[in-house]
Simulated scan of single mutants.
Amino acid sequence: MTDQEGYTTRLQGLLDRWSAGDEEVIDELIVHSQGQLRRIASRMLAAKPHVGRWNQTDDVLQNSLIRLHRSLKAVKPESKRAFNGLAAIQIRRELIDMARSLYGPEGRGRNHKSDPGEVDPEGNARPLYDQADPATDVYGQLEMVDFHESVGRLADEEREVFELIFYQGMSQAEVANLLKVSERTVKRRWRQARLSLSRSFGEEEK
């Protein structure tokens, strides 16, 4: 059994206990999901270094886990798919609030210059997020708040695929297996999500 299969099997067992009314399983769910949420937080901060400058991965993780714990008090996801969706919502909300606190009128990062990133072979500065993620043609052009709020407004099927690929770093094959659809369907929804985000800001996807 692979690590991912072990994670999934364990997660489903915990979710089954939660659905059956085991109120004490919430803490186990939180502990079990820490590694996955840490990877998501690290990935998102690496893709936006001027935000990562002010916030460490564990800061985002801690606040996201608090949000997730609170949500699990009210919602009982019955599958990995539902749990992944709930986790994605919590980290997106945390990043939105984080960006607002940084770049709002009184934000501490508003008047500070961030590291421009690497330098290409011709001597031109390249932001680190230009290389960080397959969706950076969209993400690198948008402010943190606008981007995450726009993701939340995508059509349900597009948003689910986008969140799994972008926030959780899953491959298209893994998403297809999770959602029980073809890879072709995932590719279509992934592209449409990116197009929808681009068009929201008057840009055309390249």
Rank of each mutant, 00 (worst) to 15 (best):
Q12N: 13
G13W: 09
L14N: 03
D16M: 02
S19I: 05
S19Q: 09
S19Y: 03
A20N: 15
D22I: 12
D22V: 12
D22S: 13
D27E: 13
D27I: 06
L29R: 03
I30K: 10
H32Y: 03
Q36S: 08
Q36K: 12
L37N: 09
R38G: 05
R39N: 05
I40P: 05
M44A: 15
L45Y: 04
A47E: 04
K48G: 07
K48Y: 11
P49F: 08
G52P: 07
W54A: 10
W54C: 07
W54M: 13
W54Y: 14
N55P: 01
N55T: 04
Q56W: 08
D58A: 09
D59V: 03
D59G: 04
L61I: 11
L61V: 15
L61R: 05
Q62H: 08
N63G: 05
S64G: 01
L65C: 11
H69T: 14
R70M: 09
S71N: 12
K73E: 14
K73N: 14
K76H: 00
K76V: 01
P77C: 11
E78W: 06
A82P: 06
A82R: 15
A82G: 10
F83A: 05
N84R: 01
L86I: 12
L86N: 03
A87I: 07
A88R: 00
I89F: 11
Q90T: 09
I91R: 08
I91Y: 08
R92V: 09
R92S: 14
R93S: 10
L95D: 06
L95C: 06
I96F: 07
I96Y: 06
I96K: 01
D97A: 07
R100H: 10
S101Y: 02
S101I: 07
L102P: 05
G104S: 06
R108V: 14
R110A: 15
N111V: 03
H112I: 12
S114A: 15
D115W: 12
P116K: 11
V119N: 04
P121C: 13
P121R: 11
E122S: 04
G123F: 05
G123M: 02
A125C: 00
R126N: 01
R126S: 07
P127M: 02
D130V: 03
Q131T: 01
A132T: 01
D133T: 15
P134R: 13
A135S: 13
G140R: 02
Q141E: 14
V145W: 00
